[in-house]
Design a protein around this nucleic acid. Structure first.
Lengths: 336, 336
DNA sequence: GCTATAAATGAAAGCGCTTACATAATAGGC
DNA sequence: GCCTATTATGTAAGCGCTTTCATTTATAGC
């Protein structure tokens, strides 16, 4: 592999000049630039990024930590982030934290040891304190889908509370009053928020809560099956079911089918996230749209602006609003 | 950020010794090691990976190029690769080629300029010649789901031909003889192979091909809708439909539903890939399982073994076999 | 043509590590 | 205890770039 030195020799200029045309960060006469570029082409020169990083104290890489790499959700996230950074000539290093505290910490350390200029974190298990300490330690990062008040300026979130509210209000507006709820794990912040929104909608319509209509799942499909089964076996009847994400809604739909319960005629179901498979379900799932792609892009822009000092990026937005996507899994409470 | 120099001073040893305990590649007395480790801990030392790469001529990073980052398929791929490399202390840089030749080339250049030790490529648009040249240029890479004869030792593939054969044979065994086929774009190697398998099965059962039963789609869901619609409007009738991937099968199922055709009673449908949403469809999709996770892991191991000289990795396997996953979208040809 | 100023280029000192190679410490054989 | 064979540690030369500072060259004003 040719080095900058060979290029400079072939072009008959100094190392510094070659570096200037590579980085385009200082005036170089056109004739000189042409000579250098010709030399680079002739040698098939490609800058050594390790040397660049070492000398410039810039890695031009951004670490991304998500819970899982597979799944409909994170793919979109990664895709948008990569897209945005590629355009800026940065690259993306990925890691998975699997919603496990130790793994999340280890992954963050891993990414830091890679000298990433910034991190984009979608973490669930580490504590607020850990993140605050991380920030104090000088690590540049932005948080997706998590609000830590002391770090508010680096949090990009969805209004989960409002999303939960919208889902349940939709059911209420359709005439339902007996509304069951399958939650995500309550130790997760977004699960709690969504549930609070649910409560708010109920309160607004004067419907009192019934513990027999609540089931705590784990955001996976199987807990949707378990949830509906358990709720049906419970003390209360219901005509609508709000699920805190689409996976569980899908599981609930399968369970309903197996129990001979018609969706939506006998049971309306709403999900949350609007992941790509939501319209593969039968009936197609009514859900709350989570604009994860937009959020991801915003996180990338936050980095471009705050870490790389790009001034031409669009204004930053910290909170995104979910919206209802009405499909075929919910209907008016009529014949029961 | 503390440097190795400060660690060495605090521990009262030389730079070289610190380096040795970091890399654990030369004998160091336990007492010395302890001193160094204590010093590292005290200073919160983390090696600078750019400096390591520069000095060692090893980036410890692997570039992954896939067509898309989102979608059910690549998520699994990335997940398994990341997993495997993380364990080995390597990191993964990702890029998307979007099935576009220029973009694929550019992405490869991008990854190379990042000095990746190796690349794992899932490319569709670049030519065999380009890849051969790339190999001749000394670039270490492994190819997923693509067979270039001259590069056979670095190709890890699925037996697409056999997969296509299995799908159609399944239909034939169920008694179907009028079998339509929705293909992927025929410029893609895997699409062609799957179709050849289909042809082989037909031939084996003595069924002659009918051009009116063939539709070339683009592997996306919408072309499944278009495909079924066009085939139904065509000159021939059929009781079974083989789709070259699950997305198109899902589109075909939607179209069937809209056309009032019952699946599988009136029309059996089989897909290909067994992506995660295949069991969200209604009825659940019978399909051909593509063990993409295993293939991805194998690619990672190829790199570990051939690039990093890890000798303890399990034996390499170049060709993976697909298998039929029978669910609810196909049935015996009985009442028609 | 001569100076004052600005623009373009060059020289050289690192960036933080790895790794020959040289040297020092330790262990083993007698 | 002495010599040799190991084993452990230190010295120092890069790895390929960026960047400050000094120097040269061009531009303009008179």
């Amino acid at each position: 592999m040719a080095t900058i030195y060979e290029v400079s020799k072939l072009a008959g200029v100094s190392l510094a000049t070659v570096s200037r045309v590579i980085n385009n960060n200082a005036p170089v006469r056109q004739a000189t630039r042409d000579k250098v570029e010709a030399a680079m082409r002739e040698l098939g020169y490609r800058p050594n990024s390790a040397a660049q990083s070492l000398a410039s104290q810039r890695a031009n890489s951004i670490g991304i930590l998500v819970s899982e790499l597979h799944g409909p959700f994170y793919g979109v996230l990664l895709s948008r982030i990569e897209d945005e950074f590629r355009r800026a000539g940065k690259h993306v290093i990925i890691a998975a934290g699997h919603s496990d505290e130790a793994l999340e910490r280890e992954s963050i350390e891993f990414l830091r040891s890679r000298n990433c200029d910034a991190l984009i974190l979608h973490v669930e298990a580490v504590s607020d304190e850990y993140l605050i300490e991380l920030a104090a330690d000088g690590c540049a990062f932005v948080l997706i889908n998590r609000m830590v008040p002391q770090l508010a300026d680096r949090c990009i979130t969805l209004n989960n509370h409002h999303g939960g509210y919208l889902a349940t209000r939709h059911m209420l507006e359709q005439g339902h009053r007996a509304i069951a709820y399958i939650s995500g794990p309550m130790w997760k912040h977004d699960a709690r928020e969504r549930y609070k929104g649910h409560q708010q909608a109920l309160a607004q319509f004067g419907v009192s809560e019934n513990p027999a209509l609540f089931f705590e799942g784990d955001f996976h499909e199987t807990s949707g099956v378990e949830g509906l089964t358990a709720l049906r076996a419970g003390a209360a009847t219901f005509t609508a079911l709000v699920c805190a994400n689409d996976e569980m809604a899908s599981g609930a739909m399968t369970a309903a089918h197996d129990l001979g319960v018609q969706v939506p005629q006998q049971l309306s179901i709403v999900g949350f996230d609007n992941v790509n498979f939501a319209h593969y379900t039968h009936p197609k799932l009514t859900t709350i749209d989570y604009p994860i792609g937009d959020i991801a892009q915003m996180a990338a822009r936050w980095v471009l602006r705050n870490v790389y000092q790009h001034t031409n990026v669009a204004a930053l937005q910290a909170v995104f609003e979910p919206k209802l996507v009405q499909r075929d899994s919910t209907c008016l409470l009529t014949a029961l």
